[in-house]
Amino acid sequence: MIHLSLPAALAALLAGLGVYGVLARRNAVLVLIGVELILNAANLLLVTAGSRPGAPLSAGPVITLFVITIAAAEITVALAIILVMFRRTGHIDLTAVPDLSDEPEPAGEGAP
């Protein structure tokens, strides 16, 4: 016996923290951490909903597993892009105006 409003409240809390993390960070990897928190809130909500008696098709845990897989794919590509950004600009600061030109820039290490 467990009251399901508890995990639901935790999910809401995690989502809020994730939103704050996304907005309060300028380091791109740390923004990703916020994104992961939001994803986990969604996962928790799915599991919670799936734990209700009479939930059909085992949808809760199955979709949670799917979301975890998608999260793995997402983080791989996202980190690849962040590493590209680091190599091109020498930083991963999201408050900087991005350069989207086609031409490669001189490596950031050499820049003053």
Binding site: M1, I2, H3, L4, S5, T48, R52, P53
Partner: peptide, 8 residues
């Protein structure tokens, strides 16, 4: 979820 419970 108010009042919803799961029998685990």
């Amino acid at each position: 979820f108010a009042g919803a419970t799961a029998d685990l």
